[in-house]
Design a protein around this nucleic acid. Structure first.
Lengths: 358, 358
DNA sequence: GTTAGCACTCTTTCGCTCAGAGTGCTAACA
DNA sequence: TGTTAGCACTCTGAGCGAAAGAGTGCTAAC
């Protein structure tokens, strides 16, 4: 038995109808669609075939058909038409992303908010692992007698800092020296590379005076590097899911929330997805997410992967709309932060003028 | 009619029974309690009085009594016995908070996690507004030709940084100069004070060369200061609420989630609470939180308010347990980060030894 | 002042029926 | 041979009434 044109047409109709209604689709309903000119009986035969082939299931004998995970996959790969985003939405996205677009992190949060609003699903954003970021410099700054701040600046401009409590007194000169020694040793190296080095041995060859500081500083330094390997997860729109009929059962809603608020586990899932636009449906996901579908896309700046944005929701998701919103937003993000773009930035002109004046 | 001893006893029994069962309490149930030696009929009379006085309500004629907000308030103020935390729990709290206790922010997140686990409620933590933090120094650091990082260090050791995209080329010397000028002007001043100053005018009297930089830098500086006024909100345990029978109705659960995930609004509520241990119940809260109870407590370091931790849940909350957990955790947090405490910190001894070796 | 008794109310649950939706199969049709 | 009409059958879900259970309020007696 093969998937001929007619079967595909019926399958497509079932999937898209089910996506919008979340009700099992019966043969009579389908036969009324203008694009399907077949009698209910014929449709029933085809449905029966499709069920045998694993594309449809039956909640119970006298219910209509429901798409299987396999059907969603086929739908996404071959059947759905990628809806083009209405111009109004495009405009709204652009406007809301450009307003306050000076800080990447904040803009990404706005993007996630926007995404959950426009899709009515739960959205998320992660920053990539920074293990391959190169260190630009390292600075220790005095705070008070017993604490200093460690600051690590990467070549990509990302700054990480953490407070260090000192076990022994320090002088500002020692701190400066420490900063210089460490910067000298680690500048240009990737975070992951530094983490595997034997740092303490480094200080033996260096100044004796620093050894005292090193006792307090090195463990904190290592911890801070490890902290840089963490992926930040931002989520939005939790309550959206409760508007969907499939979660009118509280225990289902709770399962969803539990899967999704287990940050560590969920982050792990997100980190390990394919790059670019990735859609996973039902059993393509890990066990705890097998009732859901995820759509993610990456945004890049100057070709470098910066982060990942996406949504999670029920398998009967408007894949076409969702992917086009996500793609539009990630593309927009990428453009906004593209660096070699010294075009017509109107606001800056006064500043330039001021500068040239003097 | 006054609240005599017997009425109080009955009221206490009703509130505490209702807290643990969430079922309306009938006169017969109460009469079976060993500590209440009255017939159902007598209890009914008292209940009727208590209802008239506004402490109890009736879901319908043939249902038992349910405490009103007023009753919860009385219960919290006068009737409940503050349960002392079992030693096991105390130990667990101490252990889990001290593990990895070098970074305050992270420890606070752990504390909130712990809190939601132990209370089975939704927990949250906020950092205080830093408008009165004093600036210690300001630093501009080069990243690449077109971007620099602005770093503001406060006297309390908190560091805020943001990326600035430069509209015009800069030299490292200029950056350093800029850092010095700004540090000189703002050191020791509170963030809120700096925000009201006319910064641009400051530069007129300063170096001409800096004016060019100022065009890019000053707006970002102001934005960063504003960012410092933001209060961070961390939340945990969303899914706990779905285990409670009162949220078996999805629409109620959704209302809860919506009230609580509206970060801006919810943060606002949390910021404006009384200091110290604060309990607000039902209509003591704002309209959108009128079905819930909140318990919050502050943690301080060296007498200075550092942050606030708490839970939100149904009004029938185990106030005794919850407050003792929260108090124990906040006290513990305060102690952990108390600075002039160079006592027996065992973990640091190896480091010290290492130091003495050399 | 307390209590037993009783009529009354309201909710919840259970079983039942019935309508509706949909299927699968068979037989007829083009 | 593929398509369709017809029909028996299945299953769900809504609606209904009865009955059980919980609890009250009132009255009258202790």
């Amino acid at each position: 038995m093969d998937l001929n044109e007619r079967k595909l047409k019926i399958l497509q109709a079932i999937v898209s109808d089910f996506i919008s209604t979340s009700e099992p689709i019966g043969s009579r309903t389908l036969s009324k669609r203008p694009d399907i000119d077949l009698s209910p009986a014929t449709i029933r035969n085809e449905m029966s075939d499709l069920e045998e082939m694993g594309y449809l299931t039956h909640p119970h004998t006298s219910a209509g058909r429901v798409p299987s995970d396999k059907a969603y996959r086929l739908y996404v790969d071959r059947l759905m038409q990628g809806s083009d985003l209405p111009e109004v939405n495009k405009q709204e996205i652009s406007e809301r992303l450009h307003k306050d677009a000076d800080e990447l992190d904040q803009t990404v949060e706005h993007a996630a908010q926007l995404l959950s609003e426009m899709t009515n699903l739960v959205s998320f954003a992660i920053t990539p692992n920074r293990s391959e970021s190169k260190i630009s410099y390292i600075n220790f700054l005095p705070v008070d007698e017993s604490s200093v701040v460690l600051m690590i600046v990467c070549e990509d401009g990302k700054v990480t800092n953490s407070a260090i409590r000192m076990n022994s007194p320090y002088t500002e000169e020692n701190l400066t020296l420490m900063s210089k020694v460490m910067t000298h040793n680690f500048k240009g190296k990737a975070v992951s590379a530094v983490l595997t080095e034997n740092i303490t041995s480094m200080f033996e060859s260096d100044m004796q005076a620093l050894a005292g500081l090193a006792g307090s500083v090195v463990p904190s330094f290592m911890k801070t590097l490890e902290k840089m390997l963490n992926v930040d997860l931002y989520m939005d729109g939790y309550s959206n899911i409760f508007r969907l009929p499939e979660y009118s059962d509280v225990s289902k809603a709770r399962n969803f929330l539990e899967a999704v608020t287990n940050k560590e586990q969920f982050t792990n899932v997100l980190v390990n997805r394919d790059q670019g636009l990735a859609i996973t449906i039902g059993d393509e996901n890990s066990e705890d997410l097998k009732d859901f579908a995820l759509v993610t896309a990456d945004y890049k700046v100057n070709g470098k992967l910066i982060g990942r944005l996406g949504v999670i929701g029920p398998k009967r998701m408007k894949y076409g709309e969702v992917t086009s919103v996500i793609k539009y937003i990630t593309d927009n993000l990428s453009q906004t932060f593209e660096i070699p773009a010294p075009e017509e930035t109107q606001e800056t002109e006064p500043a330039e003028a001021e500068y040239n004046d003097k």
